[in-house]
Amino acid sequence: MSEITLQIDGREVKAEEGMTILEAAQSAGISIPTLCHHEKLEPYGACRICTVEIEAHGRTNLVAACLYPVEQNLVVRTRSEKVDKTRKVLLELMLAHAPDAAALQDLAQEYGADKARFGKESSFCILCGLCVRYCAEVKKKNAIGFVDRGTRREVIFIPEITSKECWDCKECFPLCPTEALQATFLLTKALMSPSPPSAPESEE
């Protein structure tokens, strides 16, 4: 393992080859906001809130810190005018979907994002995929998945698997950066649909 030196926010940071900018920053105690990142899961790069500005080979570029591998002599800026503006717009877009999410509101305050900038389209979901990926990668149950595409993309529980697996697990709920209640709602809906063979009548 060769060691790599890069610069993050003006500080020299040592990292190992194959690490991402996010990992290198975290090991140096520099914080980069994340929403779709989870230690146990593969990097996904869905929320883009970890966007940072990098400078390499004489050019600057915006990249997702959770995906971008460190390079020798890379210059990273975790806060710059461009980065802040990008994060602000991203937050405003996500707030249109989940205006009351605590995680988003904290970030919105920091970046001055206006939650009413874009028309409300409350789906409560920002499609970070944490629940979907956790179920597939950690629990290996695949009870929850994405369906459809584009603006109609959403997360659903598969009734056939949900009725067997989810009642005793529910580990995906606390992962949700927006509304865990939404997951409950979707779960209930999945169990209420006519097809599952052995759905419990009622829990409580």
Partner: peptide
């Protein structure tokens, strides 16, 4: 193949 993935593909 997990059913969720098939749904993913079939709706995409």
């Amino acid at each position: 193949v997990p059913l969720s993935q098939i749904q993913h593909v079939a709706t995409f």
